[in-house]
């Protein structure tokens, strides 16, 4: 009897489908660690970023809301009371001794007090904060556009990213304070501000006093709280584990536009 090519094809397809189902249901845990799969994840992140940036352009603004829409109870997330002794000493004095460093690849490093920061031109915006976990809150933020700080410090041409070094130690075993980074598109976005006021009052400790980032077109974990130092760099390979941020080093995407 002649071999039936259709039967052959059927067998092949059945085997293929079986394998696909097996992969889907049993193998995802194992595959999640594989280099080829994590490589695919990184490719997808780049694809998402390229697609979103193409749709967004540089200056498309996140939606701004009215006073009436502000959350009655804004959830405080991540660190809400940094235990670090240096930070606590600063907090006791109302951050009078706090100095924001702006350095790295800049012509003119800055060290700004809270009063000096408050003296600079400010932007106020009522925006929605979207946490990677899925919840959202609306708050009113006032602060200095990051672009203004970077222009004052004069970025060197090699600078490609801006790194935020924070005061909050996330994991007491590891002792690493929070760190984050964004690229220059987001750094110079008009709504990217270093906020020192929330809902019309000085930024409370649980929300990142004395100053925290707002990066309105990305998820909450990009918006570092308790910012101590802003560093311009060419690459963040030497920062933490090299993925560009505290949560990025724990598996999350560096580009958090979705």
């Amino acid at each position: 009897m002649a071999k039936d090519p259709l039967a052959e094809r059927r067998r092949f397809l059945r085997r293929g489908l079986g394998a696909a189902a097996g992969l889907a249901l049993g193998g995802c845990d194992m595959l999640s660690e594989r280099e080829s799969v994590t490589g695919a994840f990184e490719g997808v992140e780049r694809l998402t970023m390229a697609a979103q940036r193409a749709l967004l352009g540089r200056d498309a603004l996140a939606r701004e809301f009215t006073e009436a829409e502000i959350s009655k109870a804004f959830r405080a997330n991540g660190s809400i009371n940094p235990p670090d002794a240096g930070y606590r000493a600063l907090a006791r004095e109302g951050f009078a001794g706090w100095r924001l460093a702006v350095d790295g690849l800049v012509e003119r490093p800055l060290a700004l007090s809270l009063a000096e920061l408050r003296g600079m031109p400010a932007r106020t915006q009522i925006t929605r904060h979207d946490c990677v976990e899925g919840w959202s809150c609306i708050g009113k933020w006032k602060g200095v556009p990051l672009a203004m700080l970077l222009e004052r410090a004069r970025l060197r041409p090699q600078a490609r990213y801006v790194v935020f070094h924070c005061a909050d130690v996330m994991d007491e075993k590891e002792g690493a304070p929070y760190y984050e980074s964004i690229d220059l598109v987001d750094a110079f976005h008009p709504q990217t501000i270093l906020a020192y006021e929330m809902n019309g009052r000085p930024l409370p400790v649980e929300y990142g006093a004395p100053a925290r980032m707002r990066v309105e077109r990305q998820l909450g974990y990009k918006m570092a709280k308790y910012v101590m130092r802003i560093e311009a760099v060419e690459s963040f390979a030497a920062l933490g584990e090299g993925k560009g941020g505290y949560w990025e080093d724990r598996g999350y995407e560096w580009y958090a536009g979705i």
Partner: peptide, 9 residues
């Protein structure tokens, strides 16, 4: 649910 898409559209 994407904050970037929301800014674009």
């Amino acid at each position: 649910m994407s904050p970037a898409i929301d800014a674009a559209f």
